[in-house]
Design a binder for these strands. Sequence first.
DNA 1: CGCAGTTTTGATTCATCTCAATTTGTGTGG
DNA 2: CCACACAAATTGAGATGAATCAAAACTGCG
Lengths: 232, 232
Amino acid sequence: MAVVPLKALIYPSGESPISSPLADLDAFANAGLGWRRVKRGETAYLAGDKFNAIYGVRSGFFKVGNVAAMGREQVMGFFMRGEIFGLEGIGAGRYDGTATALEDSELAMLPFALMERMAQENPAMQRELHAILAREITRDHGIMMLLGSMTAEQRLAAFLLNLSRRFVRRGYSPSEFHLRMTREEIGSYLGLKLETVSRVLSLFQKKGLLGVQQKHISIVDIAGLESVYRQR
Amino acid sequence: MAVVPLKALIYPSGESPISSPLADLDAFANAGLGWRRVKRGETAYLAGDKFNAIYGVRSGFFKVGNVAAMGREQVMGFFMRGEIFGLEGIGAGRYDGTATALEDSELAMLPFALMERMAQENPAMQRELHAILAREITRDHGIMMLLGSMTAEQRLAAFLLNLSRRFVRRGYSPSEFHLRMTREEIGSYLGLKLETVSRVLSLFQKKGLLGVQQKHISIVDIAGLESVYRQR
DNA sequence: CGCAGTTTTGATTCATCTCAATTTGTGTGG
DNA sequence: CCACACAAATTGAGATGAATCAAAACTGCG
């Protein structure tokens, strides 16, 4: 049996944007694991769907959001190439959010039952799985921090710095990028209204921290952004 | 070897306030697992400590908080008997919060390496472990929802209803309880200032939803609270 | 190439914060 | 057991950051 590291299941070819202790594993290569194309605007799963797999982004960009009781959407996360989403489903056995592609994308499906079985037999795979879950917990705590105690400016600064770091790890420019999501989606993610997001972006531009051209962002002064984030 | 369900490690005697598919497992009983008394105001661990175990509350009440950069504390969670905390440590190998007892308490220490080893050999234990991690993710998402899109009144209502549900599961009254934490800690958890917490509590009282006597809360109108929570 | 969806910007309102004073409760030592 | 001191909670008044409502400008999709 061929030994296939997890990363190879997510990334098309040899590349490994994410550094993590990768498990040697074989079953995936054969097993029901599939790849799936999802076009912009289409969904990988809907809130309420039965949970069976987590997803790795091979290419493209996703949002996972939760349409709560009364129409208002809450975006729980954005995911780019090499990142994994769908973990919110594990608890209840159903996804509690809807995953929507923000651009034409490719997904690797990682059936959870299979992952569990493999983790059972392979300590490295187990570590990998726990790392994935732990990363999600850490990520969520960071967001709680943001939402619980930061101003609109700090939230936006943190958001942009976080995006920048993630882009850079994937080999893109840290300072020039294209937002795939609308102001409304950013706002939902950060607990702000779209007008506020727009205003703060304009403010940052006026302060000389950013260049903003609709969805094109260029970070002019990273240190400045960081100090906005830390201020107070 | 005696077969000991996980719950028995957390609860002193036979009782099982939490319903979950419990693993049959033995190693714990013998292994390095320990119990620990923590007095009110003392800590189970500090932010930055090396992560080695997660904790089950056998009795008492804990808060886990994160003193970010500039003095301002952010409370990430409150934990009562039968609940498990310390999971934030798994990701980085260090706890990123400080766990403080809000009353004299007893903790069960669950060494994580041991749990992983056991999960490796015992599918039921593995399921248990994943359930613990998944529950934390679900919990965090709920809090993100709160913080991202709810008013002060809705947050307080959700908080009280959540406490009530948790108390009831442990065999306490759903409508009469004693808050172990200060208004400031509640506020930090909910992304509000202590004065706001106090005001909203007073408002609820005036509306006839609650009786408030400092830390004694009696929920007079659960349905009313629920409708506050859902309103809009 | 036109139009719907998105973004920007302005004016105003409102919820929550901040600052401040008072009351109430709690733990400690005489 | 009482009294004192300190911490926690309540309440008020005013300031403020973000939301809301509204209009105009942009733009990229079909």
